[in-house]
Computed example of a mutant assay.
Amino acid sequence: MLSSPNFSTGLRLATRARADWMVMGCLLVVILAALLSAQFSGRQPTAVALDIGLSVIRFLLPLVLVLMTQELLSREFDRRYFLNTLSYPHPRHSLLLGRFITVSALALGLLLLLAGALGLLVWLIGRGYAQGTPVALGYHYLITIAFIGLDLLLLSAVATLLAVVASTPSFVLIGTIGFMLVARSFGAIVELLTHNADVVSDAESYRSGVGLLGYLLPDLGALDVRTIALYGKIELLPADWPWLVLSSLTYTAGMLALAVWALQRKRFA
Rank of each mutant, 00 (worst) to 15 (best):
A163Y: 03
Y215W: 12
P134S: 11
V190I: 05
Y206E: 08
L223S: 09
V164L: 02
T85D: 11
N6A: 12
I125D: 06
V158R: 02
T9V: 07
A130D: 10
G138S: 15
A47H: 07
G175C: 04
N6Q: 10
S41I: 01
G232E: 11
A262G: 03
L161E: 01
R58L: 05
S55P: 00
G209S: 09
L112K: 00
A188V: 09
L256Q: 13
G98S: 03
T9Y: 08
E71N: 05
S205M: 11
R184Y: 05
A239V: 15
V245A: 15
P45W: 06
L110I: 09
V164S: 07
R226L: 00
R43A: 00
L258V: 14
F7Q: 06
M68E: 13
H90N: 10
G109P: 08
F77A: 12
P134H: 09
L263R: 05
A49N: 07
Y88D: 07
L112C: 09
L95R: 02
N6S: 11
T227L: 05
T227M: 04
G221N: 05
L13C: 03
W243R: 15
S205Q: 14
L111R: 02
I177E: 01
V190R: 01
V182F: 09
A259K: 12
M68T: 01
S3D: 09
S248R: 14
G187H: 00
R265A: 06
L256D: 10
V245L: 15
C26W: 04
A222C: 09
S8P: 00
G128L: 12
L216E: 11
Y88H: 13
G187F: 02
S167P: 00
L236N: 08
A14H: 03
L83S: 05
L217R: 09
S208C: 03
P134W: 11
L124Q: 13
T194I: 02
V30A: 03
D20T: 15
I125N: 08
L249V: 11
L36K: 11
L35V: 04
L152I: 08
V225H: 11
A14Y: 03
S167E: 06
P242R: 15
S185K: 06
L212N: 13
K266W: 12
V48I: 11
V199H: 09
A159Q: 00
L249K: 13
W261R: 13
M1I: 10
N196V: 12
D51G: 06
L137N: 08
V200A: 12
Y129V: 15
L155P: 00
